[in-house]
Simulated assay, not measured.
Amino acid sequence: MYHFHVADDHPLFRNAILGVIQRHYPDAAVSQSVNLDSTIQELEKNDDIDLLLLDLHMPGSTDLFGLIMVREKFPSIPVSIISAVEEVGTISRAMGHGASGYIPKSCSPQMIQQAIQAIMAGDRWVPEEFKGSLSPVDVEEKDLAAKIATLTPQQYRVLAYMREGWLNKQIGFEMGVTEATVKAHITAIFRKLGISNRTQAVIMMKNF
């Protein structure tokens, strides 16, 4: 019996995915989560998940952080991205960082079913129109991804705010923590990424 996990904070699309799974895999076990923290918790509790359908952008995850963290922590679990983003660059990077598939949210239920079926059969799946356009991820980006995977979700959130030029006080207010806590996160970020200042962090993330 298959076990699917759907990680998406948008109820309408989450229900659409669940509907496809229930229709074509009626005996499957299905679990759900709505942010990166709860997704990681579910994956830690369940080592029998056959496919994770992961929203590219949900609370706790921006860009490819969720995918990178899951692939680092749970390399044996196949992951398909589900996203409203339909840019070839994003799809290329997601596949280059270990996704088994990339399902745009504009896909019909029939196409979603075909994608899931292909991935469950061990194939890699992207929409037909993107198959000839994907480019590989370079070694430098993969090395950076490995470092980013060591960050906690809170540290990554701080890093994302730093990339946007936010001050420590602004970051603390937005996250509901003290400025001292923000500084502690930044110290840990610098250590894990092998850098020594905010400018290096911003440049690094702009290239990511």
Rank of each mutant, 00 (worst) to 15 (best):
L12H: 08
V30S: 07
Q200Y: 11
L36V: 01
N46R: 11
V70T: 02
V177Y: 06
I186S: 07
V79D: 04
K183N: 15
Q170N: 11
V182W: 11
A160P: 00
N46E: 02
Q170R: 13
N207K: 15
P75M: 14
I91A: 01
I195C: 12
I40A: 02
I186K: 13
Q200L: 12
Q32H: 08
M120D: 07
Q32S: 09
D47N: 11
R157S: 12
L151G: 03
G194S: 13
R163Y: 11
V158M: 09
K131M: 14
G101H: 10
A94M: 04
A146Y: 03
S33G: 05
I82F: 05
R157C: 13
V202S: 09
I49V: 15
E72R: 01
K131I: 12
G19Q: 08
A184C: 05
A28Q: 05
I82A: 12
L134A: 08
Q41M: 08
D50I: 04
Y2H: 07
D37F: 03
Q113S: 15
E72I: 00
R71E: 00
Y2A: 08
F74W: 02
Y102G: 11
W125T: 10
A184L: 10
T187F: 15
G132H: 05
G60N: 10
R71Q: 02
L12M: 15
T90W: 06
D50S: 14
M175V: 02
T39L: 04
V6T: 13
L144K: 11
V70F: 00
L56W: 05
F65V: 00
M205V: 13
E86R: 06
S76H: 10
K183A: 15
Q41F: 09
I82N: 09
Y161M: 14
S133Y: 01
